Simulated scan of single mutants.
Amino acid sequence: MARVALTVQMVESAKPQASAYRLHDTKVPGLSLRVLPSGVKSWNVTWARNRDLAIGKYPTVTLESARTRARRKLAEADEHGAPLALLKSKPKDLTWGVYLADHYKPHVLATAKAGAATVANLEAQFAHLDDTPLTGISRAEFDAFKAARLKAKIKPATVNRDLDRIKAALQQAVNWELLAVNPLAGVKRIKRDIEQRIRYLTKDEEKALRKALAARETLAATRRESGDAWRVERGYEPMGPIVGYSDHLMPITLLALNTGLRRGEITQLKWADIDLAGRRLTVRAGYAKSGKARHVPLNSEALQVLTDYRKQHTGKGELFGIASVKTAWAGLMREAKITGFRFHDLRHSFASKLVTRGIDLNTVRELLGHGDIAMTLRYAHLAPEHKAAAVEALID
């Protein structure tokens, strides 16, 4: 969010990014230009906290026209509490189901990266609201939904995502002047305990994991050798020994263990994101959870893994070309005899190792790509000796 005295050149040159952003005009406080990932630019006016109204799209509405409209809307809000357009009668018979199908679904499919998943979730989780007018949706309605989800043992993080999706949908209805105010604007996400248990590999578990990975590679090499012997005996061309790794599992596991990348970040990596000479990889903004690009240095093991893996690839396109490691991971955990450990927990293992070895939490936050230090503070308890040293410094 930038605050500048907007010019025509600034508006014209504003480029779309991985997520929507706004340029706020200092000449008419309250006026902003919203730039969507799709490239659509729209003018909005804000007159109070969480009170926002779309007043036109650029270039149909020019900068000066937008300023004129914004001043008028702000004057109306000052006199009446809200722009007059919002105080007029709304289509009271517009139900959630109709709004979702006819208005929000086409919009989100066209503008959001995960639009299809968002719509599928809204349709599945809020089907009970299909016949409810938008004006009839209330905080009490969502509280009842939340209570039922939690009672069904749905994780708070999942319920929070439910809330985020429906709040965004209702806010868009406000932007389109189909709803006067967002009834869920003040509903807060469930706070999760930052001291929740963090599952990470013990030293013995890491040894077992590495042993299982090596055994898997050895078995694949043995099978290839046996298969080639069978082919030669029958006059077929042998496939030759495996160069690099037998498949994706070992390199993707070791890369996660040494970089702390999320599964979704790793599976979307491209060879263009890998700089072997510079010993770093780049997580692009388009697939980073935070929506911000970050550069992650490669330690010696991660560098060797990618160097070896490169031998069996062209070095173009996707790094791994897979969407999931679920089946292969489950088999690996059985072989390693490790229980209750998800692929995502490799990220916790990466962070835990850094903290226990004295790396400061802000550096850990940057490496993990956390937008909020509160997420990184979950690992603070793993370095009690640093806390002890800090309070000991008070003694003369």
Rank of each mutant, 00 (worst) to 15 (best):
L281W: 04
R223Q: 14
T327N: 15
G278P: 04
L109E: 11
P133N: 07
V364L: 01
E206Q: 13
R334G: 02
P29D: 03
I166S: 03
N44Y: 13
G291D: 08
E141Q: 12
T376M: 01
H386L: 15
L261T: 03
L178E: 02
A75V: 09
R216Q: 14
V98L: 09
G340L: 06
D193S: 10
A124L: 14
A221V: 09
P16I: 07
L219R: 15
K153S: 15
E392Y: 10
G340P: 05
P29N: 01
Y99G: 08
P16F: 07
A383K: 11
V45R: 00
R199F: 01
L394C: 12
A212S: 11
H344L: 07
L298I: 00
S324V: 07
A389R: 15
A288M: 06
P59I: 07
W43M: 03
A374N: 15
T259K: 03
L257A: 09
G227Y: 05
A110R: 13
S246L: 03
L109Q: 10
G115P: 10
E64C: 04
E123H: 09
Q312W: 00
T376D: 04
A220V: 04
A120Y: 08
T314G: 12
R69M: 11
A114D: 15
L63C: 01
Q268N: 13
A229Y: 02
P37F: 05
L382T: 06
V296R: 00
D131M: 12
F350W: 05
G260A: 05
A388E: 12
D193Y: 06
E318T: 11
T68F: 07
I322F: 10
T26Y: 06
A140N: 12
D360C: 07
A120G: 09
E141S: 11
T111Y: 06
W271I: 02
T218R: 13
A390L: 13
K90A: 05
T118P: 04
L319F: 02
H381N: 10
R216L: 08
A2W: 12
T259M: 06
V364F: 01
I266R: 04
R139I: 11
T267K: 10
A180C: 08
R216F: 00
S138T: 13
L394E: 10
S38N: 11
A383L: 08
H381Y: 10
L281M: 05
R280W: 01
F350M: 02
